[in-house]
């Protein structure tokens, strides 16, 4: 089975994001970028499925600027087989991303699309669901466990209040949650091998899909600074403070 793993290049999760002075977005100039952590989990899962002999080929696709090739190479170093960059110099909205990915899926005909549940930059948590609707495939989001047998997948999902287990027919879209696995870091020999793997570059226009923006960002602002905490001596003190100062009791 072929698996398609979409990955996104985002601001590194260890970097403190700063808002641009004009509040139009997050300042990305000279900021360290990395693969979205949830995408990394999806890549890892695909590699594990390949190691188990369930998956035969892992195709890694990214939609983004030329530098996203670096992100694809990272995925190839983890164990992906080949890469595809759909180059776009503007940041696409979730629906546009889903449409491009649908076009890629139509071409590649994977048996499974495995992707992060959301990207840590926009936190939209939308592309997987939209892509599943556009393809008319089943979806299983927030996966914490994936077992594939034959033409279906048993997916354990992390939902409010517990775990839900779904059986989905393949092909399907599965999105990875944090506890699905712990991604490996690439070994040196695999980094060297990844340099030689096939990485195709196409333009977003090549797919002829409507990527016109439908959303308007009004403003991006820092969250309000948190005030320092206090220590209370007794439980009575705490109750009093919750009543009088916090006003929650």
């Amino acid at each position: 089975m072929k698996v398609l793993v979409p990955v996104k290049r985002v601001i590194d999760s260890n970097v403190k994001a700063r808002v641009k002075p004009d509040q139009s977005g997050v300042d990305l100039a000279n900021v360290k970028m990395a693969m979205n952590p949830f995408c990394e989990i999806a890549v890892e899962e695909a590699v594990r499925l390949k190691e188990k002999g369930i998956v035969s080929e892992i195709v890694v696709v990214s939609i983004g600027p030329a530098q996203a090739q670096e992100t694809i190479r990272t995925a190839l170093a983890m164990g992906g087989d080949r890469g595809l960059l759909v180059q776009s110099d503007v940041d696409l909205e979730p629906l546009a991303v889903a449409k491009v990915l649908k076009a890629v899926a139509d071409e590649e005909q994977p048996g499974l699309i495995l992707m992060g549940k959301q990207a840590i930059d926009g936190d939209n948590n939308a592309v997987g669901q939209m892509l599943s609707a556009l393809l008319g495939w089943p979806q299983a989001t927030f996966a914490s466990k994936i077992e594939i047998s034959g033409s279906s997948a048993k997916v354990t999902r992390e939902v409010d209040g517990g775990l839900q287990t779904l059986d989905v027919a393949l092909p399907a879209v599965i999105t990875a949650d944090l506890r699905l696995n712990e991604p490996r870091y690439a070994s040196l020999p695999n980094i060297m091998k990844a340099k030689k793997k096939d990485l195709a570059v196409k333009a977003v226009g090549d797919y002829g899909v409507d990527i016109a923006p439908r959303l308007t960002v009004l403003k991006v602002a820092e969250p309000p600074k948190r005030a320092g905490g206090i220590k209370v001596e007794t439980a009575d003190d705490m109750v009093a403070k919750l009543k009088t100062e916090a006003g929650v009791l």
Binding site: A34, Q69, E70, R73, T74, A77, Y185, A186, S187, L188, I191, A194, K195
Partner: peptide, 15 residues
């Protein structure tokens, strides 16, 4: 360059 950053990223994660 890109290849050198990839080395650095991977070793940073190991460390």
């Amino acid at each position: 360059n890109e290849a050198q950053r990839a080395l650095c990223d991977s070793i940073d994660r190991l460390c």
